[in-house]
Design a protein around this nucleic acid. Structure first.
Lengths: 188, 188
DNA sequence: GCGTTCATTGAATCTGTATTCAATATAATT
DNA sequence: AATTATATTGAATACAGATTCAATGAACGC
């Protein structure tokens, strides 16, 4: 079935192109025609692959939903070590797997205000905060993390990471931070 | 001159309304008609006050340019103390002077990709990083801040703050972080 | 080789919004 | 009060960009 494979590949090319452009210029500033030109293909053809711009966005979000399920505890690994490794992993993607890195940034952007409602809700359905709260509480119990509202701490942790990743997306020359900087926010 | 004053007030009402809506829903998702309805006034009248949606955006950015000139050293105050106070100030605005807080968030948003180019460049002309780099280097010399590329540290500091402020804008119930959390990113 | 189905294109619509405009009300000026 | 200038409105227009469509080309099954 060369035909079907071909189509699948093409579809993927569109998704990847769109992801890059969405992260680079933002959703509204990226026209269907821009994506088509970048793939490249005619504007009209885009609609054989995706019913609408919004569906394209939705598909991308669904794809992001699969990815590395954010954080989850690993028994036997200290909370701070775990988070450090997690961050190191993400920042390494920035250089080695821009696709994955972009997806992270993208998911964070879509959940923000001003994005089409459905995509937004979908993106918000991944809850990175709750598992992080658990990890933080564990760390607090062990005395390695500072006292404080674990929920607010978790949200600040993620918000900071998102801010930093977007800064990195905007300026490819920016160096990734030392993961320890972010973990230090939490340390006692 | 009741007439001129009246106009000035009205103009200001528009700016404030637009600021709120831009931060709450984003620039593209905020229609001129939405701003008009919120002020309230007719859609057409908006154009007696601002030539275009983009000029309205520009005026808002210019207004933001005046505001508290981000950070600057204060002789005799330790770098960590200074930054802590600065953050405390900002977060206090969130509850007491939403206008000022929104302006901070807004300026950060406008400098991002996907915003009209002119407004973006203008917003980027405020350079918070350079003065922060100085403060960080001073702190490093004094041994209270960790070793590391001061430029990257400064940018991460601001990016984190921006991320957190946007999170707070999105969810008014979110508690502000303890300024110390952010300063800890820098501490030795 | 022949018909059928899918891929592809570019031009033609359709739509949502910014923007303009002619008309009316209201305030200032004489 | 009459005249002029400004504020205001709602409807008309302009435009950018998404979406549709009729036509063409290319691969596939028979």
């Amino acid at each position: 079935m060369t035909r079907k494979e071909q189509k699948e590949e093409r579809r993927n090319a569109i998704l990847m192109t769109a992801l890059t452009l969405f992260v680079e210029r933002g959703y509204y500033d990226t026209k269907i025609a821009d994506i088509a030109a970048a793939v490249p293909m005619s504007t009209g053809l885009m609609f054989h692959y995706f019913a609408s711009k919004e569906e394209l966005l939705l598909e991308l979000v669904k794809m992001g939903l699969q990815g590395p399920g954010s954080v989850g505890e690993v028994p036997g690994v200290a909370p701070d070590v775990y988070l450090t490794m997690f961050l190191k992993q993400i920042f390494s993607f920035a250089g080695e797997q821009p696709w994955v890195f972009n997806m992270f940034v993208f998911m964070g952007q879509v959940r923000r205000v001003g994005m089409p409602e459905e995509a937004r809700r979908l993106a918000q359905s991944v809850d990175a905060v709750t598992p992080t709260v658990k990890i933080i509480k564990k760390g607090q119990k062990e005395g390695i993390f500072r006292k404080g509202d674990a929920d607010t701490m978790a949200r600040c942790f993620w918000a900071s990471l998102q801010g930093i990743m977007e800064e990195m997306s905007a300026d490819k020359n920016m160096k990734a931070p030392d993961p320890e900087w972010l973990v230090s926010m939490l340390r006692a």
